[in-house]
């Protein structure tokens, strides 16, 4: 197996309440027992709604959020077991691109400085070598060199996202965590950024963790997809199989909600389910309240992930069979 990223039983929890700076009482589980493998040069799509823990997952992989348990294996080294100092040599390997590049840039630094900053921190180049490298990075992402002296507010949304990508590529990473990189962009710009990401990947053999709520963007860019719901893995597998034959009712609901122009006003595409959510302490499936096909067993026993073959995993007692939808 080519070197890549392997996540095993990863959980993240936050203290539910803090008093005088100290955690009090229960913890709040944000991610529960997540596992996946991301091969070099591949893209894994992480799909979920707000609050599903998809951003936390990206941050946990980069050790920006401390995991409470589990392993983060990078080249067979467990990053979860390292302290800050031990992590330092691995930091340049993996970079994060935020949804809103404007929020992630110092408004008082020129775009050139924004891109150069990681080079100063991680690569120790001379000023001259840095300037050459910044120009090279800018041309890789299709950012006009004349924009390097501008400030973030002077750039359009698409240009800013290119600058953010250039900065992320500065340390020659092998893994990029892309957190909703195209959500704030118009369709025509989204298409360009998605194409650019594909080109960069083909050119450099990058691995992407592509976090998005948009199944269409994920289906375009990710070979494999993992569906999250309230911090639990619902389903993961090859994107094409997952979209053509969703096994989890939640995946099927997400797909049904995707506006497909051909199916006009398909009534009740997402019927409102009024079942009460299970108590936090109960053993019920987390998707029980919203599930269209829930059975009594789902209220008393949480499903564990089982394989459907072809690397296709589903956490459901009653996975759907056959094509849920014709395309």
């Amino acid at each position: 197996m080519s070197a890549g990223l392997r996540i095993e039983h990863l959980s993240v929890e936050y203290a539910a309440r803090r008093r005088l700076g100290r955690p009090q009482g229960d913890t709040h589980k944000v991610l529960t027992d997540i596992g996946f493998t991301l091969l070099a040069g591949e893209t894994l799509g992480i799909v979920g709604e707000s609050g599903s823990g998809k951003t936390t997952l990206g941050h946990a992989v980069l050790r920006m959020t401390p995991p409470s348990s589990g392993r983060i294996l990078w080249d067979s080294v467990d990053l979860a077991a390292l302290d800050d100092r031990g992590l330092r040599p691995y930091r340049p390997h993996m970079q994060l691109v935020f949804q809103d590049p404007y929020e992630a840039m110092n408004p008082r630094m020129s775009i050139g400085c924004v891109i150069a900053e990681p080079l100063i921190l991680a690569c120790g180049l001379t000023r001259r070598a840095r300037r050459i490298r910044v120009a090279q990075l800018a041309s890789q992402v299709g950012l006009d060199e004349s924009l390097l002296t501008r400030y973030p507010r002077e750039l359009s949304g698409g240009q800013r996202q290119r600058a953010a990508l250039a900065r992320a590529l500065a340390t020659k990473p092998r893994l990029l965590v892309l957190d909703e990189p195209t959500s704030g962009l118009d369709v025509s710009l989204q298409a360009r950024i998605l194409n650019l990401l594909r080109d960069l990947q083909a050119e450099k053999g990058l691995s992407y963790l592509f976090i998005s709520h948009d199944l269409a963007a994920v289906s375009y860019i990710a070979q494999r997809t993992l569906v999250l719901f309230r911090g639990h893995m619902m389903e993961q597998g090859p994107t094409d199989a997952l979209i053509r034959r969703p096994a989890h009712p939640y995946t099927a609901a997400l797909l049904a909600a995707l506006p497909v122009p051909a199916e006009r006003k398909a009534a009740n595409s997402a019927a409102e389910v009024t079942r009460l959510p299970p108590d936090p302490g109960s053993r019920a499936c987390v998707y029980y309240a919203g599930c269209a096909t829930a059975q009594p067993r789902c209220r008393t026993e949480a499903p564990i992930a089982t394989t459907l073959g072809d690397d296709h995993l589903v956490a459901c007692h009653y996975p759907l069979h056959g094509a849920a939808r014709d395309f």
Partner: peptide, 22 residues
Amino acid sequence: ALRDAIPPVPADGRRLAEIPGQ
């Protein structure tokens, strides 16, 4: 151009059309 810039589901393997310029 707007229509062709939308990624189809499931993907059909084709490259998304881009609109040059702004």
